[in-house]
Computed example of a mutant assay.
Amino acid sequence: MKRLLSFALLAWASLLAATSLAAGKTELTWYGHSAFRLKTPAGRVILVDPWITNPANPRGQNDLEQLGPVDLILLTHGHGDHIGNTVDIARRTGAKLVATADLSRAMVAYRGYPKEAATPATIGHFGGELSLLDDEVKVAFVPALHGSDLEAAEGMPNAGLLVAGGEAGGFLISVRDGPAIYHAGDTDVFSDMALVQRFRSVDIFIAPIGDKFTMGPGRAALATRFVAPRSMVIPMHYGTFPALTGTPAAFGQALKAEGLKTPMREMRVGETLAF
C-alpha cells in the first residue's frame, strides 16, 4: 500500500512539474547596447551580442559574473561592440556559437572561441533556419545592411589587424510556447524586412535607433512598418556613446509620424520582461 501511495505521489509530482514547465514564461533581459539574454520556458539561456560590460551598463562586471549557465551565443556580426564578452563567456560555460559560417570560422581563428563549441550544428546563413535546444528554439538568419570585419585578438594570428568576418545579419528567434523575436543587429532599413513576417509572424522587433552607424529613429520607424510586430518594438543600440544620438523619445515620435500603433517598449538597462 505504501509503495502504491509513493508511486501515486511521484506521478502527481511529475505531473505538477510538467504543468509548471508548460506554464513557464520566456524572459528577455537587456544589458544595454545590443546585448540581450533570452531565457526559454524550459530554462535554457541564449545570449545575443553579449557585450555585457558595455559603458551603458553600470553593473556590467557583476552581471557578467552572475550569468550562470549559457546554452547558446548568437552573434549578428564581428564588430567589437557586439562580440564583447563572447569568448570569455564561451570558455566558462561551453556555450555553442550560432553565427554564419564565415563569422564562426573567424571567431575561432582570430578571437579564440573554443573550437569544440563552434561546430557545423549551429552555423547557418541567410534564409536558413536552425532548430536548436531540443527543438524548443528556431533561429532564422536574416540579412542586414552593415559591415562585419573583426579585430584579431592579442595572442592570435594577425593580432591587432582587421580580418574578414563575413556579412552582418540579424536573427528571428522563435521560442516554442513563447514569442518570435526579431533582433535586427546593426542595420539600415531595407524593404525586404517586410518579407520576414511573410514566413513567420514577428511578436517583438528589437531595432537599432542610434543613427550614424545604423538607422536612426525615423528610418527605424519605417523598418517597424515593414516588420509589423504584433506585440511591441524595443529600441537598442543608442546612447552607449555620444555619437549614437538617436533616442527612444525621437523613435516614439517617428512611430506616430509613420501612423503606427505598435507599442514601443523602452527597456531599462538590466530590466527583464516576461512573455
Rank of each mutant, 00 (worst) to 15 (best):
A152M: 11
F190I: 01
E27P: 01
G147D: 09
L28H: 04
N54H: 07
A140Y: 12
T247I: 10
D192P: 14
L10P: 00
H183W: 10
A220V: 11
A11R: 00
R198F: 10
V108T: 10
P229N: 11
M193T: 00
P69S: 06
Y238D: 02
A144Y: 13
M215G: 05
A194Q: 12
R3C: 01
E27Q: 10
V142P: 09
F275P: 02
E167H: 15
A194L: 05
Y113S: 07
N62T: 01
A207V: 14
G169H: 05
A152R: 06
T40P: 01
L38G: 00
E136A: 13
D88T: 06
G169N: 02
G80F: 08
F190S: 01
L15Y: 00
M1A: 14
G270Y: 10
A184W: 02
G155M: 04
T247K: 15
K96P: 07
N54S: 06
F251V: 15
I52R: 08
L222P: 06
P157A: 00
F213W: 12
V87E: 00
M107Y: 09
P229V: 08
S231G: 08
E27Y: 09
L47N: 08
D71P: 14
M232Q: 11
K138M: 07
L195A: 12
K39A: 06
E154V: 10
E258P: 04
V45D: 02
A184R: 05
A221P: 02
V98Y: 04
A11C: 01
S131G: 15
S6W: 08
E116M: 13
P114E: 12
A99K: 02
E258C: 14
T26Q: 05
H79G: 05
V45I: 12
I123Y: 11
L97M: 08
G259D: 02
L74A: 10
L244K: 13
A90N: 03
D134A: 15
T119G: 12
I181G: 04
A223E: 05
D71R: 14
R225F: 07
L150S: 07
A56L: 07
S231P: 00
H33A: 13
V269D: 09
G128L: 14
V139S: 10
R230M: 09
V137F: 06
T272Q: 09
I83E: 03
G270R: 10
A22L: 09
L244H: 11
A168T: 02
E27D: 04
F251A: 12
P69E: 02
A23H: 04
S231F: 01
A207F: 03
G43W: 00
M232K: 13
A42W: 00
R92M: 10
T100H: 03
D177L: 13
E136I: 10
P69F: 08
R59S: 14
K138D: 01
S131H: 15
S174F: 03
G185E: 01
I123C: 06
N54L: 11
L15I: 02
H237C: 14
R3P: 01
S174A: 05
L9K: 02
N62M: 02
E258N: 08
G84H: 07
L75M: 09
L38C: 06
M264P: 00
A13W: 00
T240N: 07
